[in-house]
């Protein structure tokens, strides 16, 4: 693991240039350009609002559109980091066959690239908050740590996924399915408070309720999205109890994911 830090420093310039290339390429020859980074969550918010008008989701004191927009800001960052990380190694096959540098540069770059879009999305979120008259509190200082948490969760998927994808392209096909499953299991459309209320207060699943809630929060995004809404909109600190299971799971799995990647790395050029 110390190797990764050393490489991070040594290859920071390369990663910066590659990230800049990804961003430039994505929006070159597109009329709306980087606006697309904003359009995607906005369209999703509109869809969720229509959905909500049918089923009714209690959003508490926070207006529903900004609550979901806030959730989508961090969710889309995670989702796109993970999926682009997974396809990054195969996508750069031409470089892998010709030039050597540590291969983790590719998944890392994918995640770094997404930081830029996250920045734009946050900017819009700030605008929405001003519109709804929600003032940020000091809790906003948690933001970098939460973003880091999302990056680590995305990298856990990206390292092992991109290495497996070199051998079995099934991975990049299956990933969108897995990710949308995680999305419905995460408090994106509904707030975490609803789940908490059902399971912990009303004990909806009987004696299994507490266990089920822990299982639900094993999804790193469950606690993370709630925490993100807390620090931006509710002015509350992250809910440590909701975040802990997912964070522990991420920190346990990430080293294995990275080690698998490093072991597979030497054969990328032969197989890809």
């Amino acid at each position: 693991m110390t190797g990764i830090l050393k490489n991070l420093i040594e290859y920071r310039e390369l990663m910066a240039v590659l990230a800049w290339k990804n961003i430039t390429l994505r929006y070159k020859q597109s009329y709306l350009g980087i606006l697309w980074a904003v359009l995607k969550p906005i369209v999703l918010v509109l869809i969720f609002m229509v959905l909500r008008s049918f089923v009714g989701i209690d959003s508490g004191a926070i207006p529903y559109p900004i609550l979901t927009y806030s959730a989508l800001t961090i969710w889309i960052f995670f989702q796109e980091s993970a999926s682009e990380g997974v396809s990054s190694v195969v996508g750069n096959a031409n470089l892998i066959r010709k030039i050597y540098f540590p291969r983790e540069v590719f998944p890392l770059t994918s995640v770094i690239t997404k930081l830029v879009e996250l920045g734009i999305s946050l900017f819009i979120l700030a605008g929405l908050m001003a519109w709804y008259g929600i003032a940020p509190t000091w809790q906003i200082l948690w933001l970098p740590l939460l973003v880091l948490n999302a990056m680590l969760a995305a990298l856990t998927i990206a390292f092992i996924g991109s290495a497996l994808n070199v051998y079995y392209r099934d991975v990049s096909t299956a990933l969108p399915v897995l990710l949308s499953l995680i999305m419905y299991m995460s408090p994106v459309i509904y707030p975490l408070a609803l789940v908490k209320d059902k399971l912990l207060i009303h004990q909806a699943a009987g004696e299994w309720s507490n266990v089920l809630y822990t299982v639900f929060t094993l999804n790193p995004l469950a606690g993370l999205i709630d925490a993100f809404q807390n620090i931006t909109l509710r002015g509350l600190p992250p809910d440590a109890a909701a975040m802990m299971p997912g964070l522990v799971l991420t920190l346990v799995l990430l080293p294995f994911s990275y080690l698998y990647f490093k072991r597979a790395e030497s054969y990328f050029a032969d197989v890809v």
């Binding site: 240039v17 590659l18 290339k21 430039t24 030039i99 540098f101």
Partner: peptide
């Protein structure tokens, strides 16, 4: 290897240079 069709010559020099390990 690593030249990107959509980037300009100037951009490619910086990109390819970084790939080959030349500092900015």
């Amino acid at each position: 290897a690593g030249l990107v069709a959509d980037l300009t010559g100037r951009e490619n020099i910086y990109l390819n240079g970084a790939i080959l390990g030349i500092s900015k």
